[in-house]
Nucleic acid binder design. Structure first.
Length: 385
DNA sequence: ATGTCC
C-alpha cells in the first residue's frame, strides 16, 4: 500500500470534502454530482454538501451547502438572494375555507397600493429602488399557498409553536425579485463565477448588499402574506421565516467559515417547512442532532426531477392544463400561465416524502406535522397562448 | 430566478 503519492491537483488546491446526504431511493442526477465536485475544487472550499433534493443548476447545483475559508462566492448564492419560506398561522378554521371564492380575489402580482418604503423600514430594511416589486410573489417555483394540517406527528412541538390542527396556514415562497438579481449581476460583470477574497472592500460591499436583499426578501414574504390574508379576509401570525439562498459567516475555533446555501434551508434557526410540489404534502420539521455533517443545512424542497422543457413535453401528453389546476388533495391551483402549470406539476418533482425520510434517517430532523394544500397561488398574468 | 427577449 502506497501512502506517499499525492495527486498533483490536490497538492496545489486540496479539494473540499464532498458529501451527499441522500439514500439510493432519492435519485440524484449525475450532472448535479459533477457540479458539486466542481464547486469543491474552488479555492478555499472546505466542505460541499448535497442534500436529498440536490439537482443541477446554472453552473452550481441547487439543494446544496458549501463552507469555504478566505473566499466567498456570490455566484453560488445565485440571483435570488434571500429567497425562502415563511409560514403564517391563519386565524380561520379549515371549515371556513372558501378556495373557489378566494381564488377570484387574490392578486399577489400587481403593485401594492400602500407605502412600500415604509413597510420595508418597518421590517428593518432600507430603500433600494426596487420597492415597486415589494409584495409581489414572483415567478418560477415561487408561490403562496393556503394549507391545512394533514397529520400532527409531534404534538408537543406543534403546540409549542402555537399551532392548532383545525386552523388554516399560509406558506409563502418568494425572494428578493429584481434586487438580488441586480446585486449578482454587478458581481458577475466583474468576476463571472469567481469569488471574492473575504478581507477585501469588494467582499464587504457585496455582503452589505446581500444582507439588504435578505432583509428585503423577508419583508417581501411578509407583505405577500399580508396581501394574501387580506384577500381571504383573515389575519395571521408569522410562525417562522427561513432563507434558503444566502452566504453567512460562521465563527468557530477562532476561524471564519463562509456558509453558502443554494436551495438549502438552515438547520440552526428552529423549525422549517420543506414544501412539496403543489400536489404533495409539505413537511413542518424540527432540526435535531448536530448540523456539522450537513453544513448546518437541510433540504429546501422536493427538488426538480425533470427540466422545465422536459416537464412541458412529457406532461402535455399526459394531462390537460385544466386537470392540473386541481390536485389529489382537491385543492385549487391559480396558474394562468399554461407552460408554468406543466413545468411546476407534481410529476416534475421528486417525491417529498423520500426527501424528508432521508433527512430523518440522517438524524437531521424530526417531523412535526404534514400540511396539505387548500389553494395555491402561482400567477395570474402571462397567459402564454 | 429576473420591472424576464420587444
Amino acid at each position: 500500500m502506497s501512502t506517499s503519492s499525492i495527486e498533483p491537483s490536490t497538492a496545489v488546491a486540496p479539494a473540499a470534502t464532498v458529501r451527499i446526504i441522500a439514500s439510493p431511493q432519492s435519485w440524484v442526477e449525475g450532472e448535479a454530482v459533477r457540479q458539486l465536485e466542481a464547486v469543491a475544487r474552488l479555492p478555499g472550499m472546505r466542505l460541499a454538501v448535497g442534500l436529498p433534493d440536490l439537482h443541477p443548476g446554472k453552473g452550481a447545483p441547487v439543494g446544496a451547502a458549501f463552507e469555504s475559508e478566505g473566499f466567498l462566492y456570490p455566484y453560488l448564492v445565485g440571483s435570488d438572494i434571500g429567497c425562502g419560506m415563511g409560514l403564517w398561522d391563519v386565524d380561520l378554521p379549515v371549515r371556513k375555507a372558501k378556495a373557489e371564492r378566494w381564488a377570484g380575489k387574490l392578486d399577489l402580482e400587481g403593485p401594492w397600493e400602500g407605502d412600500a418604503e415604509a413597510f420595508l423600514a418597518g421590517h428593518g430594511g432600507k430603500a433600494t429602488g426596487f420597492e415597486a416589486a415589494l409584495g409581489t410573489v414572483g415567478g418560477g417555483n415561487h408561490f403562496a399557498e393556503v394549507q391545512r394540517v394533514e397529520t400532527v406527528h409531534d404534538a408537543r412541538v406543534f403546540e409549542a409553536l402555537g399551532l392548532r390542527e383545525e386552523r388554516l396556514l399560509l406558506l409563502v415562497h418568494s425572494g428578493s425579485r429584481g434586487l438580488g438579481e441586480a446585486i449578482l449581476r454587478t458581481h458577475v460583470d466583474r468576476h463571472a463565477a469567481g469569488g471574492l477574497a473575504a478581507q477585501t472592500e469588494e467582499a464587504r460591499a457585496y455582503l452589505e448588499r446581500h444582507d439588504g436583499a435578505v432583509t428585503w426578501a423577508r419583508a417581501n414574504r411578509a407583505l405577500v402574506a399580508e396581501r394574501a390574508l387580506q384577500g381571504i379576509g383573515a389575519t395571521g401570525r408569522r410562525v417562522l421565516d427561513v432563507c434558503h439562498n444566502s452566504v453567512t459567516a460562521r465563527h468557530a475555533e477562532g476561524r471564519v467559515a463562509w456558509l453558502h446555501r443554494k436551495g438549502a434551508a438552515p438547520w440552526d434557526e428552529g423549525p422549517v417547512v420543506i414544501p412539496g410540489s403543489r400536489g404533495a404534502l409539505s413537511y413542518l420539521v424540527l432540526p435535531v442532532g448536530t448540523g456539522e455533517h450537513s453544513a448546518h443545512s437541510l433540504a429546501h424542497g422536493a427538488g426538480r426531477k425533470w427540466t422545465r422543457t422536459a416537464a412541458r413535453e412529457r406532461l402535455k401528453e399526459r394531462f390537460t392544463a385544466e386537470s392540473l389546476t386541481r390536485t389529489v388533495f382537491k385543492s385549487h391551483v391559480i396558474c394562468e400561465d399554461r407552460d408554468l402549470l406543466f413545468e411546476e406539476a407534481p410529476p416534475a418533482y421528486k417525491a417529498i416524502d423520500r426527501v424528508v425520510t432521508d433527512l430523518v434517517e440522517a438524524g437531521l430532523v424530526r417531523v412535526v406535522a404534514t400540511l396539505a394544500p387548500v389553494l395555491t397561488y402561482k400567477t395570474r398574468g402571462r397567459t402564454a397562448e
